[in-house]
Each structure stands twice: as structure tokens, then as C-alpha cells.
Design a binder for these strands. Structure first.
Length: 566
DNA sequence: CAGGGGGGAA
DNA sequence: AGGTATCCCCCCTG
């Protein structure tokens, strides 16, 4: 391979990719590798990506071939693609589909075109424990080997095999579940015509096609504001089966129910709420994750998990699937014959359980990049700025002397942030501004000094709603919010967000906070996101990690260094 | 039945 | 690794 110094990328044999961020071809190269590589570092000149097995399998699940992956790498790489990487990519993608779960003659079977591999993997005790007795000779005359799998172990065996490095393609099919005739209305109850956007229909089709050919489960990844609920409703209307919808909190439960009433022709008596307050189990039931994970004491059962078997569900929708809690994973593992749809804006989890999402919900079936949605005008154009500021002397000292545990908090609560916020508020005098932070003390302090209303978990629901309304109406145009902003679905739209502190390195929180200002704007379709960071502290390190997902999506953070604040 | 407290979870 | 705030459950009170 010849040396092409004009190209923007270097592909290395340790599965990392170095991409020049200032290169004219940066943007197209970034888009090309986004489907199968994960961003791990993004300083100003060279971004580092890593090709992971899971990202390759997700790409494979959406139909990508190894030649396409290596082709894209080769097209932008100065030194070509190292032969070991080419082999590695072929081998890893080749693993997807090598093992399949199928159902034949009433028996669940693990099959492979590689008998030796099958023998090797089933010799692990953890795997053989999940097999039914007896060697299997499934299809005489073919090269395919098969072993019978215990019916209950459909999820467990997939989890175990992916741990051993082999994803399983699940083609064992689904039971249909109870019928539930439903379709989308032509117009919403307010009389507006209901027309799915092109990408929403594509996402539904991607899932439905998966349902007929590959097995109807998987994850749809769409940015905040892309209309994930509508897509969920679309899938429901496509399948027309009793459906359990799981989501993060009761506000969101109510939101789903409102949407079901507004946009489908379901009779209200067919829609149930299963929450702390009500325990309705109807053909379409909406519940929170938290009620499912409720158990009276540490080592007792989960009484509400029975919801999974209380009706013959034909579809389970996991809203915000990246937040799915561990006990729900366990139950989900046991219901692999039920169709499952995961919805999320950021497939990343900081706890590394994305393999479980891949295995137990299903592979990624569709992804809509944020920037594409922006180009189509469905979300506002956002500019991101990271403002780095120093400590003042006393705090600098406190930081230096503090133990590792307190360092982050001291940096996050740097009182100099106040003056910066003030400046930004002056600049955005006529804008709707949200100030978002994580430490209640810091927020309340700032609220007092700037005379801005503050919403934390302590503020009663009614008061919150009142403030939201006044903000929406434009009566007030500044609001300080704590982590309530992470959950509130009814938080009003703003066009400026100032982040003064956040949860360590959470990429998904950063994305969600940006999402708060992305609803398309009436006048100028622009939004501004600022994040305030104390320079040369742990906060700066965490800020870098927080930004990775959005940078991966093509957002750029302009760094503004503030030396002193006079 | 509204509202507050305790407890667990991610 | 590191940790705070939040949410939601259920139970209790009046």
C-alpha cells in the first residue's frame, strides 16, 4: 500500500484509528467510520477511534459487509489498512451469523456451519449446562451442526456465548401474542394531519423487516426530538398485538398514554397505566422500570415483574433502553420469544452493559445521526462552547489540598462560574436560558444571587409546572434546574443552555442536556450550549469524556479560555 | 386521598 | 474510580 500523506486518517494494528480533526476530509471520514468505530479521545488535532467487536457486530446486523468496512478505512487512510486489521475485521464480522438459534420441530437449537467451533464452545460448562441432552443431527447431508438448547435458556445462552466472543443470531422466531387491532389516526385529536416523517417510516420499516426475516427485535437509535414515541406507535400499529411499554418515570408514562390517545384509534379502555398509583393491565399497558424493580427488601422477589406474564404480550417497547436496569435485563433474558423494541438517543452506557442490550433486546436496526436531522431542519442548529476558567487563589489552594474524592466537586463548584454565567446572561438577554447543574447547593446559591427561580427535586410538582408554564409563555426567560432536567419530559424548550456542573463523565447526560435546546425554533433556528469547566482540574478531564458522544455525532466544541474575570 | 417519610436503585 | 440527587415505590398519618 502506498503512502498517501494527503489523506486524513491512520489505521493502526491495535484497532485504533487516528483522524485529523482539521483535515478538509475530516467530516466525510468521520461519517464513514461512525457506523463501526467508537470515539475514545478528541483533543483538537487528532481524534482517536476504536473499532470494537460490538460496533462491528452492530454494523454487521444492519447488513454491512467486511469489505465495506475495510474499503471505507482504506479510502481515508494514509498508510492503507494493516493486513492484521483487515483479517481481524473479516474474522470478527464473520462471527456474526456463524452461530444461530433456530426453532425446529418444537425444539430450540443452536446451529453452526462450523461443527468444530460448535463443539469447542459447547464444551464450556457454562454453555453445556444450558443444552438439552442428546447429540443432534439436524439436517442430514448438510454441513450444519446443531445442538438442542433448553427452552428457557434462549437468552442465557446468547449472553454466555457473546461473553466467549461469539454473538448469536437469533432466528428462533416469536410467538404472536394477543391480537390488538389498532392503527394510526389520519389526524390528531387537535385536527392536525398525522403524517410520519420519512425517517420515522424508515425506522419502523427497518424494525418490521427485521421482524419478518431476521427476528423482530432490536434497537432504534434516534436523537432527542426525533419523535421516538411516534415511531413506537408506528411499530405497534404495524404489529397490532398486545403491547407492554416500559419507560423511565410516571410523567413519561402519562406522555405515552396521551400520545396513544391522540395518535391511534385505540379505545381508551384498551390503554392501561401500571404505576404506583394505578395497576391497570390492558391490551396496551404503560409501566415504569421502577415499579418493575420494586422489591420490599433486599433478598425478596420482585412482585411487579409478574406484569410480564400477566397478559400475552406480542411486543414489549423499552423506551430509553440505555437506562434499562439490571433486574429487568434478567427478566428480559427469560422472554426472548416476545418481540422487543428498544428506543434510545444514545446507545452508550457508562456501565458497559451494551452487550446485554445487543443480546437481550437485539442489535441496532436503525440509526439517525443528529447532524442529518439537523440538515433536514427537524432539530435546531446548535453551537457548543466549552468555557474554561481558573480558580481564584483560595479555591486553588483548597483544590490542591483536597483528597481525590472532593476534588471534582470543588472544581465543579468554582464560585467564579457565577461571573461567567452573568456575562452569558447579558449576552443572551432576550433568549430563553436554562442553567443546568448537579449540586443543589451550588444551584440554590446561584439562584439567590441572580434572582432566578430554581427547580430541584425538593420543589413540589405543582410549583414546577407553574414555573414551566411561565417559562413557556415567556413571562420568565431564565430557569435554574438540577438533575430534574434529566428526567422531566415536560421541561420547556429553550434556545440557550448553560451547564455549570454535571455527573462526572456521563456522555448520555451531556447529549440529553443538549437535546433540551434542539427543538426547532420559530425565528432563527439556532441554539447555544455552554459548558463551564475549571481549567486543569479533574472536571476538565470528565468534561472531555462527556463530550465524546456528541463529537462522535459531528458536534464541535469551541474552547474559550478565560484568564481572569475582571 | 393528599402529603410526607423511609428505602432502594442506577 | 468516583459519588449526588432524584425518582418511585409503599406505608403511614389525619
Amino acid at each position: 500500500m502506498s503512502y498517501r500523506p494527503d489523506l486524513p486518517m491512520i489505521v493502526q494494528s491495535d484497532r485504533t484509528i487516528l483522524l485529523e480533526a482539521q483535515h478538509p476530509q475530516f467530516e466525510e471520514a468521520r461519517q464513514a467510520i461512525a457506523a463501526f468505530a467508537e470515539l475514545i479521545k478528541s483533543p483538537e488535532y487528532i481524534h482517536t477511534y476504536r473499532i470494537t467487536p460490538l460496533s462491528l457486530w452492530n454494523a454487521a446486523a444492519s447488513g454491512m459487509k467486511p469489505e465495506q468496512v475495510t474499503g471505507l478505512l482504506g479510502a481515508y487512510s494514509k498508510y492503507g489498512v494493516p493486513p492484521t486489521i483487515v483479517r481481524d475485521i473479516h474474522e470478527t464480522i464473520g462471527r456474526y451469523g456463524l452461530l444461530r438459534l433456530i426453532q425446529s420441530e418444537g425444539q430450540l437449537r443452536l446451529v453452526s456451519s462450523d461443527p468444530l467451533l460448535l463443539r469447542e464452545l459447547t464444551s464450556y460448562k457454562s454453555v453445556s449446562a444450558l443444552l438439552d441432552a442428546g447429540e443432534d443431527s439436524l439436517a442430514p447431508g448438510t454441513e450444519t451442526a446443531a445442538v438442542p438448547v433448553k427452552a428457557y435458556a434462549r437468552g442465557l445462552i446468547k449472553q454466555e456465548l457473546i461473553r466467549l466472543g461469539y454473538p448469536v443470531q437469533d432466528l428462533a422466531g416469536y410467538h404472536e401474542g394477543e391480537d390488538c387491532p389498532v392503527s394510526l389516526r389520519a389526524t390528531t385529536s387537535s385536527g392536525r394531519p398525522l403524517q410520519l416523517r420519512a425517517y420515522q417510516q424508515e425506522a419502523i420499516d427497518a424494525f418490521y423487516a427485521a421482524g419478518t426475516v431476521m427476528g423482530g427485535s432490536g434497537v432504534l437509535v434516534l436523537p432527542c426530538g426525533a419523535g421516538k414515541t411516534v415511531i413506537g406507535l408506528g411499530v405497534l400499529c404495524q404489529l397490532q398485538k398486545a403491547t407492554l411499554i416500559l419507560t423511565t418515570n410516571t410523567t413519561s408514562v402519562r406522555q405515552w398514554i396521551a400520545e396513544l390517545r391522540d395518535k391511534t384509534d385505540l379505545d381508551p379502555s384498551c390503554i392501561g397505566e401500571y404505576s404506583g398509583e394505578r395497576k391497570e393491565v390492558r391490551p396496551v399497558t404503560v409501566a415504569t422500570y421502577q415499579i418493575l424493580t420494586y422489591h420490599p427488601d433486599a433478598d425478596s422477589e420482585f412482585p411487579h415483574m409478574a406484569l410480564f406474564s400477566e397478559r400475552d404480550w406480542g411486543l414489549i417497547i423499552y423506551d430509553e433502553v440505555h437506562l434499562l436496569p439490571a433486574p429487568v435485563f434478567r427478566v428480559t433474558s427469560g422472554i426472548q420469544a416476545t418481540r422487543r423494541l428498544g428506543l434510545t438517543a444514545t446507545l452508550v452506557r457508562e456501565d458497559g452493559r451494551q452487550e446485554d442490550v445487543f443480546t437481550l433486546i437485539g442489535p441496532k436496526r436503525y440509526e439517525m445521526p443528529w447532524k442529518v436531522l439537523e440538515e433536514q431542519g427537524w432539530i435546531a442548529e446548535a453551537t457548543c462552547k466549552e468555557i474554561r476558567l481558573p480558580f481564584e487563589g483560595k479555591w486553588r489552594e483548597a483544590y490542591a489540598l483536597a483528597g481525590a474524592r472532593q476534588k471534582y466537586r470543588i472544581a465543579a463548584e468554582n464560585p467564579r462560574k457565577l461571573a461567567v454565567v452573568q456575562k452569558l446572561l447579558e449576552r443572551h438577554e432576550h433568549d430563553q436560558v436554562l442553567i443546568i447543574g448537579q449540586y443543589v447547593e451550588q444551584l440554590e446559591h446561584m439562584a439567590k444571587l441572580l434572582d432566578i427561580p430554581v427547580i430541584t427535586g425538593k420543589v413540589p410538582e405543582r410549583e414546577r409546572e407553574l414555573l414551566y408554564q411561565r417559562f413557556k409563555a415567556g413571562e420568565i426567560n431564565r430557569l435554574i434546574v438540577s438533575k430534574v432536567a434529566n428526567f422531566a419530559v415536560d421541561l420547556p424548550d429553550a434556545n440557550v443552555a448553560i451547564q455549570i456542573s454535571g455527573t462526572f463523565g456521563s456522555r448520555q447526560e451531556e447529549a440529553q442536556r443538549l437535546g433540551r435546546i434542539l427543538r426547532p425554533k420559530q425565528k432563527e433556528n439556532a441554539a447555544h450550549f455552554y459548558t463551564l469547566v475549571t481549567r486543569d482540574t479533574r472536571e476538565q478531564d470528565f468534561a472531555m469524556n462527556r463530550q465524546l458522544f456528541l463529537i462522535e455525532q459531528g458536534y464541535k466544541y469551541e474552547v474559550i479560555e478565560i484568564e481572569s474575570l475582571d
